[in-house]
C-alpha cells in the first residue's frame, strides 16, 4: 500500500492547485504588486497603467506630510474608539440577556442576528433616511421629547454627531455577531463555577465581574480586533451615509468629520485615480493591521488555558 513520496506530492498538488493559483495571483502577488505601485505615480488620466512613472518613496514622503491623511488616521482611530466599546458592550449585553433559559430566547437570537447577514450598504441607506433632518423619524422622535438639536441638520449633518451616528449603525448591525460569540462562551462556563461562588456568598455583581467577564476575555480580545479591522476597512457605511462629511474646520483647513482612511483611499484611487498614492496608503493600513494582530496574539496566548 505504500505510495511513493512523489506521487503523494503530485496528488496533493492537484487538490491544492485551484486554491493556490487564485491565492497566488489575487492575494499574495497583490501585496508585492501594490508595493511596486506605491513607488509609482500616475502621469496621465487616460490609460492609467501605461502612464506610470517611477518616483521612489515620494508617495510615502508625501503621505507623511499630507494633513488630510493624518486627519483620516485620526478619524479611523476615533471610529475604532467608538466601535470597540460600543460593539463589545452591546454584544455582551444581548448575550447576557439571552443566557437566561427563556422560552423565546431563540426567537430573540434570530432577531438580533438577522441584521448581521444583511447588506451594509442597504442598511446605510435606510439609516440615512431615518437620520434625515426635519422629517427623519429619529429626528421627530427626539423632537417629541423636546430635543430640537438635530432638527436642522439631522444626525449625519452635524460634525459632532456624524461619526457616532455612523458607528451606531454598524454596532446595531453587527451586534448579533459578537452576541453569538459571547453566548457560546457563556454557555461554556460550567455551572459549578457559579455554584461555588454562590456558596461563598458572591453577589450577582461579583459573579459578573470576577467570573463571567474574566472568562470571556478571549472573546473580548477577539472583538477588539474585529472592531479595529472594521475601522480600518470602514468604507461602505461612510459611502452610503456621509461620503466623508460633514465638514469641520480645524484652523485654516476644512476636514470631513467621517473622513476615515478607507474612504480617503477610495477617493484617492477611484475618484482621483492616484493609484500609486492609494497603494502607499494601503501599505500604512497593512502595517497598522499587522501590528494590531501581533499585539493581540501576544495578549491572547498566555491566558487561554484555564
Amino acid at each position: 500500500m505504500k505510495r511513493s513520496a512523489l506521487a503523494e506530492n503530485v496528488s496533493a498538488l492537484v487538490f491544492l492547485s485551484p486554491f493556490i493559483v487564485i491565492f497566488g495571483v489575487f492575494l499574495a502577488w497583490p501585496l508585492f504588486y501594490s508595493f511596486y505601485l506605491s513607488l509609482n505615480k500616475v502621469t496621465a488620466l487616460v490609460n492609467v497603467f501605461d502612464n506610470l512613472t517611477f518616483v521612489g518613496f515620494q508617495n510615502f514622503i508625501a503621505l507623511f506630510k499630507d494633513g488630510l491623511f493624518g486627519w483620516s488616521l485620526l478619524m479611523t482611530l476615533y471610529y475604532a474608539a467608538l466601535i470597540v466599546p460600543l460593539g463589545i458592550g452591546t454584544s455582551l449585553l444581548l448575550a447576557v440577556l439571552l443566557n437566561n433559559k427563556l422560552r423565546l430566547s431563540r426567537l430573540f437570537r434570530t432577531a438580533f442576528f438577522l441584521p448581521y447577514v444583511l447588506d451594509l450598504f442597504v442598511v446605510g441607506i435606510v439609516w440615512t433616511f431615518i437620520y434625515s433632518p426635519h422629517f427623519g423619524v429619529l429626528t421627530r422622535i427626539f423632537e417629541t421629547v423636546g430635543i430640537t438639536y438635530f432638527s436642522e441638520q439631522g444626525f449625519l449633518g452635524r460634525p459632532a454627531t456624524a461619526m457616532p451616528a455612523v458607528v451606531i449603525v454598524n454596532v446595531l448591525k453587527g451586534a448579533g455577531f459578537g452576541m453569538i460569540l459571547y453566548l457560546a462562551a457563556l454557555q461554556n462556563i460550567p455551572d459549578s463555577v457559579y455554584e461555588a461562588a454562590e456558596v461563598d456568598g458572591a453577589s450577582w455583581w461579583q459573579k459578573l465581574t470576577r467570573i463571567t467577564i474574566p472568562l470571556l476575555r478571549p472573546v473580548t480580545l477577539f472583538m477588539v480586533i474585529v472592531g479595529v479591522v472594521a475601522a480600518l476597512n470602514a468604507f461602505v457605511e461612510v459611502f452610503a451615509m456621509t461620503t466623508g462629511g460633514p465638514s469641520v474646520n480645524v484652523g485654516e483647513r476644512a476636514y470631513g468629520a467621517t473622513w476615515v482612511t478607507g474612504y480617503y483611499l477610495f477617493d484617492t484611487f477611484y475618484v482621483r485615480l492616484k493609484l500609486g498614492y492609494a497603494a502607499a496608503m494601503s501599505y500604512i493600513l497593512l502595517a497598522i493591521a499587522v501590528t494590531v494582530s501581533l499585539i493581540n496574539l501576544r495578549l491572547l496566548r498566555p491566558k487561554t488555558d484555564y
Binding site: L27, A28, L31, L232, S282
Partner: peptide, 25 residues
C-alpha cells in the same frame, strides 16, 4: 504554506482593492 495562507487573514480587505483592480485591468 498553511502558515502563509493563514497569515494573509491579517491583511485588511481594502489593501487589496488597488492592486487587484490593477491586475484585472
Amino acid at each position: 504554506v498553511f502558515a502563509v495562507i493563514i497569515a494573509s487573514m491579517m491583511v485588511p480587505g481594502l489593501m487589496y482593492v488597488v492592486p487587484q483592480f490593477a491586475i484585472i485591468n
